[in-house]
Amino acid sequence: MIEFSARKKLLSNSGEFTLSLDISIPEGELVAFFGASGTGKTTSLRMIAGLTTPDCGYLQVNGNVWLDSAKKVQLPVNQRPVGFVFQNYALFPNMTVRENILFAQKEKKEKEVQTLLEVFGLEVLQHRKPSLLSGGQQQRVALARAIARKPQLLLLDEPLSALDMETRTSIQNELRMINREWGITTILVSHDISEIFRLCSRVYSFNGNTVEDKGAPANLFNSRLSGKVQFVGEVLECVQEDIVRILTLVVGNTPVKVVVPATEGDYAPGDKVLIASKAFNPIIRKL
């Protein structure tokens, strides 16, 4: 169990605000920090790793206190057993793939490095420098390196946002595998809803200055609605035609179009929407 509470003054586009969070994360789960940008998701992850110090806070991981500002306890970064995967991967440019992973180990164990290289499909690339790798390959090295350190907690800062769909899906499978096989509690910062649905068992929603434990990802959205065909999508485009608007939405990676009356209110690109239909209405054909 991870008990984490913190207060931290932050700056966002809309000005200064104080992030206040009190959450507990069950051990061994793969959970998501979800919310718009500038709501403190990454900062919270960094506070857990010890890379950022909260104004005040308390952090306990599996019974060990990592931070207790009331008692002036603060474990330095390098004494917290975390695996942090940065948004830009942060691989050591002076080391090869293999050396990056070796460097992360406490005691050098070639055999474990070999296993990790195999699991992440990096064997052929092991003697390359990171600058010669693609984004997906770098991401795999970053994950392998984080795991080589044998962390109690895996912290992933939007690890997949810069990758194409195919790579994304395969790394998502690897993440799920890591969580299952090694049972490492994993926190994933993401604003990709479909990713959260696919991977996470629990979502913490960052709403500006507070953080809410939403439970299962399905609870993030309006499940009060009876429609059985529900998707979460993102508005790509909103065009007025006659007295209606045609919304182009992307659901997963499929673009769809929906017509709404112009009186319905405004939709801007980037807005998240729920698309629902009664189970009776769609037509369906076997492919």
Binding site: A49, G50, V77, N78, V82, G83, F84, A90, P93, A104
Partner: peptide, 9 residues
């Protein structure tokens, strides 16, 4: 990369 090294202990 400095932060990454620190998180690696």
């Amino acid at each position: 990369i400095v932060e990454a090294a620190a998180t690696l202990g």
